[in-house]
Design a protein around this nucleic acid. Sequence first.
DNA 1: CATATTTCTTGAACATGTTCAACTTTTTTA
DNA 2: TAAAAAAGTTGAACATGTTCAAGAAATATG
Lengths: 223, 223
Amino acid sequence: MSKVEKPSKNQKTKDELYQLALKEFMKSGVEGTSMRHLAQLADMSLGRFYYYYPSKEAVIQRFYEESLIEFAQGVELAKVNTKDFSTALAFVVNHRVTTYRPYRELLIALSRSATDPRSQISPFTEATQPIRDEVITSFKELLQHFSVKYDSRLEPYLAELLWMYSMGVMLFWVFDKSKNQEKTDSLVKHLTPLIVKMIHVSGYTMSKPLVTPIVNLLKAVLK
Amino acid sequence: MSKVEKPSKNQKTKDELYQLALKEFMKSGVEGTSMRHLAQLADMSLGRFYYYYPSKEAVIQRFYEESLIEFAQGVELAKVNTKDFSTALAFVVNHRVTTYRPYRELLIALSRSATDPRSQISPFTEATQPIRDEVITSFKELLQHFSVKYDSRLEPYLAELLWMYSMGVMLFWVFDKSKNQEKTDSLVKHLTPLIVKMIHVSGYTMSKPLVTPIVNLLKAVLK
DNA sequence: CATATTTCTTGAACATGTTCAACTTTTTTA
DNA sequence: TAAAAAAGTTGAACATGTTCAAGAAATATG
């Protein structure tokens, strides 16, 4: 009756096709996998595949959406697995990198799409991206959970900034050509405590004048 | 006799094709311009066009290279047109945005390529990109020209960091959907003096302990 | 149950980026 | 200057992402 409750054969096919595509993308890369090949693997006509995913990018987009869900879950996990905010933030980012590792190939394709302002996927664009907002909300909760203290003027921006930090690390990771992407690990290990310290310090009365220009910057640029 | 001095008909044709392609890209967008159309406009066969530019991306790549040259020139210009380092840095970035403005469409395509780690174009990748190094060198000279004082441990990184800042602003600009991209102007206006102040402050003895973790970060992550 | 409507499926066609073997013209070499 | 090598050019072919009119199957409606 309602729209939600039927898993509908349609949805099931869609899911299967997605899994299939994902596996093939990992094996042969995104560009190395043709839509015809995918259709063939799924034992269906090309047109039929396109009925379920109207474009190759649509499959990537789905991957992005699934990732965001896992992202939010990772933030939740951080709450129970860590003792302070700094390790929590590092945990979130590392968790993301870890779960992405098998999908590196895919993430490259994703980052290509993401850097197109016209794309729905771009993490910077403030499209009505409900899942994106969910992640940002869970960052807000994480801050509260650890009772992080900071300059109240940062309140409207801080969670979103943390989100941007995470996405920035992802991008760095995609580019990271060092063995096992260990530079990314370094980056997170060094930068995370720095950021957290800055957040803390922003709360001290003495640093108010330092925070003011930053707040002005954020006010002018975000939202 | 030498390799350099003949502008060779080849090179001339290449230049003309580039200009032609550029104009068409601006008019119809990069994706909206087919290689066939370009060949037709140039009154040559498709295969012939491909003889000069082996791919569409090669044309974009050329645009990138030309841009880098202008970039370096912009840094030189800043030397003579500004009185202090902060305005110089803002000048460089604004100059870049200004000269890019007519090519916004192209820059989107560029940023797509740039965000592919496999591409030659990526600003982050430390490919042997001689022109890139030239820009970084001119940043070094700019620092010297204004006798900017800073923590000496930053010396190996500072110029490259400024380069990254500029590229970051470019990326922001591409995404900036505000009217006339005025948010980018805000960003530059607010952020540039902040950065310059931080550079200055790094030189004070009292801030050495603050700089140390940052230097460690840079050491671990760059180069 | 018969009909109308929606959902699904097919197969062919199209547009476009790219490749390449064959051919022609230009330049170098002896 | 004749032969050989290099540079330039052609046109057809290929692979791939995407579209779409037409039809089949499933579902809703009266």
